[in-house]
Design a binder for these strands. Structure first.
Ligand SMILES: [Mn+2]
Ligand SMILES: [Mn+2]
Ligand SMILES: [Zn+2]
Ligand SMILES: [Zn+2]
Lengths: 158, 158
DNA sequence: AGCCTTATTGAGACTGAGTCTCAATATAAA
DNA sequence: TTTATATTGAGACTCAGTCTCAATAAGGCT
């Protein structure tokens, strides 16, 4: 199914949805075009669980009743959204790449018993990281910090 | 090629090589057997670059002139060595899983221009992580912290 | 040293996440 | 509306990693 980006759709997204406007601005800088598919994918990401797999989106857009978008387009769009700093990706252990919407920067604790992901942010950690980078003359542009172990709930079970 | 684990080989490895002894002890706890292949793989890892890919080992053991060990065995052995805490794995960005020998714990800065990996260790970082985990009642058993950006050499080129 | 149970090996088939191709189609700027 | 350029989807493809299974090796026991 191919729909055109008519005024009604534009009215929903470009005017009212901040994220779509940001994404469109990003696309313009690279002479890329905003399509109906990109909008739908971004919209779906916004209503989904914060941490998701590409496969989650692919399945959604394969389900009868939902708009159909191909796996190729889903992957292409995820790359663009990451470049546009709207989403973020990271690996948990051996598994696949996971994505999350970018809100404020945070790090992760991952329970290897129940799989729960706890987000935290600590100013001291960030400051010290900055100091260490300065010592090495390293200009950081991002970092990932994942702590794995056992969450409080799983520890209490027993 | 299949060789038996004769006394000469044992003499080289089990008696003299601390790591092989440790690995063997680990294997015993799981009723697994120490084979000539496992020894060769561990030995090769010890003489290789500190950060390596499974594919590096596979290629080595496929080269004419070297002992032949299958890709299945390489992958199986890497898993065992990781379980035995002799090696460690982590992801850099989108890429594959990388392994490294475990020495002392350290974190990584990764230059996304030249690919260089800088290792560092900072007591303050570790202490604060511990404090944060305590706050959440989270029992950490490991963490990965990778900072990506531009190293000093790449910054000076220009 | 030899027996015997159990674990390991390698060839190659297989899986599945992610990429690529290309003709048909949509976008956006003029 | 026209036109140049970007995007899409179907499905082939890649390739890291896993699995299968018959042949073989390890090592505990006597
Ligand atoms: Mn998160
Ligand atoms: Mn390292
Ligand atoms: Zn848990
Ligand atoms: Zn560099």
């Amino acid at each position: 199914m191919r729909l055109s980006l008519n005024k009604a759709v534009m009215g929903n997204c470009i005017i009212n949805d901040n994220k779509t406007a940001i994404f469109n601005a990003f696309l313009k800088t690279k002479w890329l075009k905003l399509t109906w598919e990109l909008e739908k994918i971004l919209q779906k990401i916004m209503e989904m669980d914060e941490h998701f797999l590409p496969e989650d989106l692919i399945q959604y857009f394969e389900q009868a009743g939902n708009e159909r978008i191909s796996r190729a387009t889903v992957y292409r769009t995820l790359k663009l959204l990451e470049e546009a700093s709207i989403i973020n990706s990271f690996h948990i252990n051996d598994d696949f790449k996971k994505y999350e919407r970018i809100k404020a920067h945070h790090d992760h604790m991952i329970c290897n018993e129940c799989g729960k992901i706890i987000e935290f942010y600590d100013e001291r950690l960030e400051r010290i990281q900055k100091e260490i980078c300065d010592e090495y003359g390293f200009k950081a542009d991002s970092h990932i910090m994942n702590i794995t172990g056992k969450c409080i709930d799983c520890r209490n079970k027993r």
